[in-house]
Measured scan of single mutants.
Amino acid sequence: MAAGGDHGSPDSYRSPLASRYASPEMCFVFSDRYKFRTWRQLWLWLAEAEQTLGLPITDEQIQEMKSNLENIDFKMAAEEEKRLRHDVMAHVHTFGHCCPKAAGIIHLGATSCYVGDNTDLIILRNALDLLLPKLARVISRLADFAKERASLPTLGFTHFQPAQLTTVGKRCCLWIQDLCMDLQNLKRVRDDLRFRGVKGTTGTQASFLQLFEGDDHKVEQLDKMVTEKAGFKRAFIITGQTYTRKVDIEVLSVLASLGASVHKICTDIRLLANLKEMEEPFEKQQIGSSAMPYKRNPMRSERCCSLARHLMTLVMDPLQTASVQWFERTLDDSANRRICLAEAFLTADTILNTLQNISEGLVVYPKVIERRIRQELPFMATENIIMAMVKAGGSRQDCHEKIRVLSQQAASVVKQEGGDNDLIERIQVDAYFSPIHSQLDHLLDPSSFTGRASQQVQRFLEEEVYPLLKPYESVMKVKAELCL
């Protein structure tokens, strides 16, 4: 049975990233139509530049190519590739079939990587351009969430054990800070992308030097003109047959890092959902379990974690691919890159769409948070109580021993009897502590235990987050809708 299948058929496997999760716009960027249309555009740009620099290419040939950029006979191309065992030459023939007058000058002087690699770089750039505003929107939604809850005390956790208090907004800023680093890295790697350009079979530009009869300047002009037509500021000066596969490492490393950030955020949300302090959106008709109707599973956060793990592992592909590119190139890269580049971007696209949807509907339960604080705060307040007693004339050592005994009794009630923490009640009825009984409410005010959390939130948002989001103001209103 021949390899390949009808990918629109229910009898043929289709990647869930495309069929179930990723956005239509990201799927289109990695589609065959987008790819092969870009090949034709690159052939047109090459012909236009070659004509401008004096090669015998007519206006009629150029116009014929322009008129057929979208006229792609995919069936013919597939048949040609089956016959020739070469995808680029299959599309040269297919393009030439609908451009008979231009057929002889299509791909003039070029090698397969002229269309293959340059198209990949265009796709990487455009895919990054799709991700950047999506990530900015996630940051914006979380920034709104953090600002609104900047002063809401909550129990902090280290080692997932109760620690000092923080605020809900401050905790959210930990998430935002990681995503801001990801946004900066995505922008950097996007701006650092260079075009492969017009380089020939081993990167020496020998074929173009021959076409222009040894004119170095025209060869350099050709490279520059096509690079500018493709919208790049610069091209690699040095290439082998391909652009260095280190570029793929750079791009997928940034995406993998984004995956790590999203995994951490969504894990926190899942843990908070278990504590009943916070939940992701839950639709009115949504079913959490087929057997347990009360369940409210954090399905979206779980999906993000599941896909983020996949995204983090994909960076190993370009690392290994770059390491086995012998001399000017081997074909070890080809099949692998067809999979890992598309999957990385479709996965990143999915987790950003999902995280935006989550961040637009996060639900906080202040009463649950308050109750958990009441359970733990008495123990945390013991040092403040000791200091207040010393100020009232008591002995630190005597007070410490009193607190120690009462704390152990209260802990026994919590752990052995399943009761509430009654340390404060014990202190309130103990005559030894009568000098500070009137101060206990103040000493137990949760806001006095959150330090500068709310001020940190305000400063972080104003100095770091809002300036970073400013270039994306025009796209901030787009909502994230999930079908599944």
Rank of each mutant, 00 (worst) to 15 (best):
S448K: 15
R149Q: 12
E462K: 06
H7L: 13
I176G: 03
L142D: 08
D73N: 09
S257W: 09
C266G: 12
A18C: 12
E463R: 10
T166A: 04
T242S: 07
D398G: 13
M89E: 01
K134C: 13
I265K: 07
T227A: 14
I122E: 00
E462F: 11
V168I: 06
T239E: 00
D59K: 13
D11C: 12
T382W: 06
L222V: 12
Q63K: 10
S257K: 05
F95Q: 05
I105K: 14
D11G: 08
Q458G: 12
T167V: 04
I72L: 10
Y34Q: 08
F282K: 08
I369C: 14
L222H: 03
I436A: 03
S448V: 13
Y432C: 08
L183N: 04
S23Q: 10
K147L: 11
N353W: 07
S31C: 07
D191G: 08
F74T: 15
R137M: 15
L319T: 00
L186V: 12
D248V: 02
S438L: 08
V475I: 10
I57K: 01
G200L: 00
L209S: 10
L53D: 02
Y432R: 08
E79K: 12
I436P: 05
D248N: 02
R196P: 00
A392E: 15
L69W: 12
K233C: 09
F327T: 11
H437P: 04
T354A: 15
S395C: 13
S112P: 00
L108M: 11
L121N: 08
L341E: 13
R194P: 12
L17R: 00
N336W: 02
G116W: 01
R188D: 08
D120L: 07
H86K: 00
L484K: 15
D87V: 00
E148T: 09
V364Y: 04
S334K: 02
D430M: 13
I62Y: 05
A431D: 13
D248Q: 00
K187L: 08
F345W: 03
L211Q: 10
E481Q: 15
K479P: 15
D430T: 15
G8M: 15
V138A: 13
E64T: 10
L186G: 09
T204I: 01
L124W: 14
F74W: 10
I122L: 15
H217Q: 07
Q177E: 12
M476S: 15
E79T: 12
G116K: 00
E250K: 09
R190S: 11
L174D: 10
I139D: 02
M389T: 00
S253D: 03
K284N: 11
P298C: 11
A127D: 00
I385L: 14
H91C: 09
T158D: 00
I72K: 01
I427K: 01
A291P: 05
R37L: 14
T244N: 07
W39H: 08
E360G: 09
F208G: 05
C483H: 10
T313A: 15
L69T: 09
A78G: 12
W45P: 01
